[in-house]
């Protein structure tokens, strides 16, 4: 006899909502390193990867530069960490990148600050298994070099990723870009308060 096809789920289990359930954080403590690469130019990158993707990754790194780079109010303090002549203002960075537009970050803090120059970029992880860009666990981002270690590329959070140009193996969580700067909060939710008759009202429907 043919098995009847059910119209309902084969299972309906909960793992988080049940207080007695214990579970392990997926991948916790055993995150695998993935291959990416560090470059100074699109040409270097194009030797390994699709040139169009290289251009896009450099563009993303440049755009991210003034958002994630460590910030100093004092040029000397920046140079202590990154070397004499190795620091710039966001306006200089934007000019060097050939854009007219000064990133929002710089406008917000008009007092001016200094940050290390971008020395290279980390390529996003190319062509992963699913071929999907959104599942890229590693984001393209700017790289820096500290004053006392000019051979090592580091992320904005000072994580060393590569000794020179070429392939690099990184754990995705260690190179997650973190915008450095003032965080504003509370910009969503005002309509809920305005339209809420009781505190229990929901905004699903």
């Amino acid at each position: 006899m043919k098995q009847k096809v059910l119209k309902r789920s084969k299972k309906a289990a909960l793992v988080l909502m049940v207080p007695t359930a214990t579970f392990l954080m997926a991948g916790c403590g055993q995150e695998e390193a993935v291959q990416t690469a560090a470059f100074e130019t699109v040409d270097q990158c194009a030797a390994y990867y699709n040139p169009e993707q290289c251009k896009a990754d450099l563009g993303q790194a440049l755009a991210m530069h003034s958002q994630v780079a460590p910030k100093y109010t004092d040029k000397a303090a920046c140079e202590t960490d990154f070397g004499v002549g190795q620091c710039e203002t966001p306006a200089q960075a934007a000019a060097a990148a050939g854009t007219e537009q000064v990133p929002q970050q710089a406008q917000a803090s008009s007092g001016g600050f200094f940050m290390p120059m971008m020395m290279g970029f980390l390529a996003g992880q190319m062509l992963n298994r699913s071929g999907s860009q959104l599942k890229q666990p590693v984001q393209a981002q700017p790289l820096y070099k500290s004053r006392d270690d000019r051979s090592t590329f580091r992320t904005a959070n000072n994580t060393p990723v590569a000794k020179g140009v070429g392939p690099a193996y990184v754990k995705p969580s260690s190179v997650q870009p973190k915008p450095a700067g003032v965080v504003n909060r509370g910009g969503f939710g005002a309509q809920a308060q305005k339209r809420s008759s009781s505190s229990a009202t929901g905004f699903g429907g």
């Binding site: 997650q176 973190k178 450095a180 965080v183 504003n184 910009g187």
Partner: peptide, 15 residues
């Protein structure tokens, strides 16, 4: 939810 440099960020400031 937070905003830093035009990016939406979490409680620790990660995008």
């Amino acid at each position: 939810l937070g905003e830093a440099g035009g990016q939406l960020v979490d409680l620790e400031g990660y995008a």
